[in-house]
Design a protein around this nucleic acid. Structure first.
Lengths: 201, 201
DNA sequence: TATTTAACTTAACACTGTTAATTATATCAC
DNA sequence: GTGATATAATTAACAGTGTTAAGTTAAATA
């Protein structure tokens, strides 16, 4: 009876094994420099086995990114539970978002820059985890507007402005590590502070 | 006598031919999806000829990006000549920067996202055109601070905050074209306005 | 134990960036 | 004009790529 369940479990296990091997390689060597054969070698299976679990290389990328976003979402939602003041929550969320990007730069780029390139039609499609992350942001911004802390620009625009700022600084710090940036924490704080102040005025 | 000059001219001509073929293909099909053979086909030379003019594929990418940045710089400097009020200049420059990115999305990504990935050590190295673009931004910001329009955060940080905002919104609009953005012009204006207001306060 | 089914592998295709060796071509000296 | 020389461009090859179709092995069922 339970044999089918065991087989399903084993299958899921190998799927996870492939996924984490792929993540590690993508992150360390860059998506483009990782071949299916390399992943296969790492898990000690033949390259074609991967195709029994993932449609192709971009499907593998998609799955890795989905995991990344879930992890980001978890971080953010934990944070929301721990803070009450909406502006403070927004500030901390911005920080957490940027720090997430800097902690896992390759994952971040994979998810927010590389992935849309390889999946041109849809980036934040309905029901996706990416959409959930943005919904989270919208919720916070909406609370700031409701409490009349932010001036009355519509929720959508306000959220998108916030996202632009944190996305921008995250990518710049990742992509140009040798640029003579201001002290990193100061830059991050100023970006967040400036944007929030600008939304109040 | 003039034969050497003519030969040099012819060489330069073919170099340019390769460059613009590469640009067109990179932009239309994406750097990764363009092979040296494809470029060679387009200009009706053998693939290896390209290697007589460019060290390798990333060198070709570098050269394409340099051209792009030069063109952006030109746009911006023209703009500075036409405007006097520093805040107005900054606002217009932000707009011009974003519009440049949206007009040539692939060029923009190639230059500000792809290129640093393939040239990890240096992105905005000294004397590069990229540095010149940031110097331009610094100049404008510095003027705003001098005239005491902006609060006294240091020039570097202020400039970097500005850059983060425009870079962020540009990339989001490019990478997630199907996301339900606010009307594009409104979003762009709000990003710029919010950042400038935030820097004043 | 024989048969069916699922998991996995081997072999192959058409492609990639790049190098070394080779050929064609245009310039120069005579 | 002819032969030597330098330069430009090409051919052939290497080791690698993502992916597919066909073949093999191993496990579960009857």
């Amino acid at each position: 009876m339970g044999v089918k369940e065991r087989r399903a479990r084993e299958k899921e296990q190998l799927r996870q094994q492939i996924l984490s091997a792929a993540r590690e390689l993508f992150v360390n060597e860059g998506y483009e420099n990782v071949s299916m054969r390399k992943i296969a070698n790492k898990i000690e299976y033949s390259p074609t086995t991967i195709y029994l679990y993932f449609k192709d290389k971009t499907d593998l990328l998609d799955s890795v990114c989905k995991e990344t976003l879930l992890s980001l979402l978890e971080t953010l939602e934990q944070l929301k539970r721990d803070t009450t003041d909406p502006v403070e929550t927004l500030r901390k969320s911005g920080r957490a978002y940027i720090e997430f990007g800097l902690k896992y730069p390759q994952d971040y780029k994979l998810t927010f820059v590389t992935r849309p390139q390889f999946q041109k039609d849809l980036g934040l499609e309905e029901g996706s985890v990416g959409e959930q992350v943005f919904n989270y942001l919208r919720g916070m911004v909406s609370e700031c507007i409701r409490q009349q802390i932010f001036r009355e620009v519509d929720v959508e625009t306000t959220g998108q402005v916030m996202w632009s700022a944190v996305h921008g600084v995250t990518l710049l710090l990742i992509d140009f590590p040798d640029f003579p940036w201001t002290e990193q924490n100061k830059l991050i704080d100023t970006v967040i502070h400036t944007t929030i102040e600008g939304l109040k005025a």
